[in-house]
Each structure stands twice: as structure tokens, then as C-alpha cells.
Design a protein around this nucleic acid. Structure first.
Length: 231
DNA sequence: GCGACAG
DNA sequence: ATCTTGTCGC
């Protein structure tokens, strides 16, 4: 699948923030979900030696989560890590990977924040808008916002708030483990996003799609490094 | 000015 | 994210 957006990725941090401000209004916070036949998990890893970003996408049938496809791609590492500007580091590789997908998903889970972002445009929003697909952000730690400790049982959650606004949820996907930060990416209401994260969470803290994508990119990276070490 | 800060 | 030893909990 190809992006419906085509802005430059070769930008300065100041230009990146400006692009976020220009694109933030494209995010749809109300649900506009299509029937869920396929979902996707996506993530990226870094090969600092090669100066490359490796991205992986795993596609599943929903709701039984039978895997039907996995693809990966890489792109040069051209942007530094700056909190709030993660998409400008990882998205070129992610979009390259999605170009190789044969069965476009009806929903994307990304390892990072969506609406729970200083300018309400985290990478899950950027990806959802760019691919014109519903998306959910699933982050392992907080970027902004305040919250109470969620109930210890699976499914327990508390709102993530920035001032008076609820920007996400802190969700326990499994009893007794650290919670996951869920936020809206695109075309999914927060309550629905929580349901959908729980629907794909099993015995681990991180939801299945995100975890599989993480393991996948790590394996690709190991294989890459192994072959380059003998070349 | 100082602290916070996804991956 | 990545690097990286010993250590804590189940």
C-alpha cells in the first residue's frame, strides 16, 4: 500500500514540528472503522553500525490472529531521536515496509504514542493519516500526561490526562505487570482502542501485533549483522 | 533557568 | 532505541 501523504522527510527539527502542526487536523478522533478482517503490527529497530532503520510489519487475520503475511524494509538513519519527533526517524522505513504489503490491514497497531503527544500527533497518528487507515498507539512508557496507577487486574485502566483533556489510557493487559499506554492514532475512539488492545493481548505486557513486529525486526537485524560480519 | 523526555 | 553484569522474583 502506498501513502496518501507525500511531504519531505529531509527536514530540520523545526520543520518537522511545523509539519506536525499542519497535519494534526487530519487526525479523526471519532471512530470510522471498517469491518476488521485484517490487522497489522509494526515496529522499527536501529542498526547503528550501518546507520539504517529496519522496519517490520506483520499482518494477521482478525479476530483469530492467524498470521497471513510479514514484510520488512530499511531506510537510512537521517534524523536524531528527539522526544516528540519519533516519526521523522522511523516512518520512512515503516512506509517502505508497508509498500511491500499485499493484504492491506483494516487497523494498525504501532509501538509508540498517538494522540498522547505534545502536539497531539504522535507516530501512530502520522502513520494512520499517511496510510489512510485506522491506527492505535501502544507505548511502553509515558511521553506526556499524568495518571493514577491503574487497577492491578487485566483490563484495569486509568485515564492519561494533560490538563483537563484525556489524551489516552494506561491499560493493564495482564495482571501484575507494568501497564501499556494506549492512545488514539486515527479513526478509532479511545474506548474502542482499549477494547482492541485487550483483544490482541495474551500472556504478555505488550499486545501481540506489536510484540511480534518487535521480535521480527530484531531477527532481521541479527541476520543482517551476521552476514555483514562475514562479508 | 531547570526538569522531563515515545523509541 | 542499544549496550550490557550481576541480580531479583516466580
Amino acid at each position: 500500500m502506498k501513502p496518501v501523504l507525500a511531504h519531505s522527510w529531509d527536514v530540520t527539527p523545526a520543520q518537522a514540528r511545523q509539519i506536525q502542526l499542519e497535519l494534526r487536523d487530519r487526525v479523526e478522533l471519532e471512530g470510522r472503522e471498517r469491518k476488521l478482517h485484517r490487522i497489522a503490527g509494526a515496529d522499527a529497530a536501529l542498526d547503528l553500525q550501518a546507520g539504517r532503520v529496519i522496519a517490520g510489519v506483520v499482518i494477521y487475520r482478525f479476530p483469530d490472529l492467524v498470521e497471513i503475511e510479514r514484510v520488512w524494509a530499511e531506510a537510512p538513519l537521517t534524523f536524531p531521536y528527539i522526544p516528540g519527533l519519533l516519526s521523522f526517524r522511523e516512518m520512512p522505513a515503516i512506509l517502505a515496509a508497508f509498500e511491500k504489503v499485499h493484504e492491506p490491514p483494516d487497523l494498525i497497531y504501532y509501538d509508540g504514542h498517538g494522540y498522547a503527544h505534545p502536539r497531539r500527533f504522535g507516530i501512530a497518528c502520522h502513520l494512520g493519516v499517511a496510510l489512510d487507515r485506522p491506527a492505535i498507539g501502544c507505548a511502553k512508557s509515558r511521553l506526556i500526561g499524568r495518571h493514577e496507577e491503574p487497577p492491578a487486574k487485566r483490563g484495569g485502566w486509568t485515564p492519561l490526562e494533560d490538563g483537563e483533556e484525556t489524551i489516552g489510557a494506561v491499560l493493564r493487559t495482564r495482571a501484575g505487570v507494568k501497564p501499556v499506554y494506549v492512545s488514539q492514532g486515527h479513526r478509532v475512539r479511545l474506548g474502542r482502542a482499549i477494547e482492541l488492545v485487550l483483544a490482541v493481548s495474551d500472556g504478555y505486557r505488550i499486545p501481540r501485533p506489536t510484540r511480534d513486529a518487535d521480535h521480527f525486526v530484531e531477527s532481521v537485524k541479527r541476520a543482517r549483522c551476521a552476514s555483514s560480519g562475514q562479508a
